[in-house]
């Protein structure tokens, strides 16, 4: 459970979590789906508000499903293609550690084995996300 109550967390933090859940899902999500995906941590009204705000910004698109809206993250092409190209260029940089702090660095074969042991994971299991 988070130490900070949901209401006191900065709005951007909640937005990020909701957006991440939408991207991780493979289909449109209703506020209820998002609530389930996030582990029931947030009130559904809060999630609905966040989704509406994201929709206002054009970050997500929505379609009506019954009485609720279902949301999907928007991909504004051809901008998405431009992003891909830029990333490929970024990858070419030899030493990227100068400014960007990356979440994970490269793994050697030993690292990979050690990591699977530490995590108690079977080789190549993929966690399937919630709804």
């Amino acid at each position: 459970m988070p130490e900070v109550p949901a209401a006191r967390r900065p709005s951007g933090e909640l937005e990020a979590q909701v957006l991440a859940a939408l991207w991780a899902a493979h289909q449109p999500l209703t506020p209820q789906d998002v609530q389930l995906a996030l582990g029931g941590d947030l009130a559904r009204t809060t999630i609905a508000t966040i989704l509406a705000r994201l929709h206002d910004k054009g970050t997500v698109a929505r379609t009506r499903v019954g009485r609720a809206y279902a949301y999907t993250p928007t991909v504004r092409d051809p901008a998405g293609l431009a992003a891909r190209r830029m990333r490929t260029e970024l990858d070419r940089e030899e030493d990227r550690s100068t400014v960007l702090a990356r979440f994970v660095s490269d793994l050697s074969d030993d690292d990979e084995r050690l990591l699977r042991e530490l995590l108690g994971e079977q080789p190549d299991t993929r966690e399937v996300n919630g709804p």
């Binding site: 957006l19 970050t59 993250p73 928007t74 991909v75 504004r76 901008a79 998405g80 431009a82 992003a83 830029m86 990333r87 970024l90 400014v99 960007l100």
Partner: peptide
């Protein structure tokens, strides 16, 4: 990096 983000979906 900023250009990649600016041109991206979000």
């Amino acid at each position: 990096a900023r250009a990649a983000v600016a041109g991206s979906a979000i």
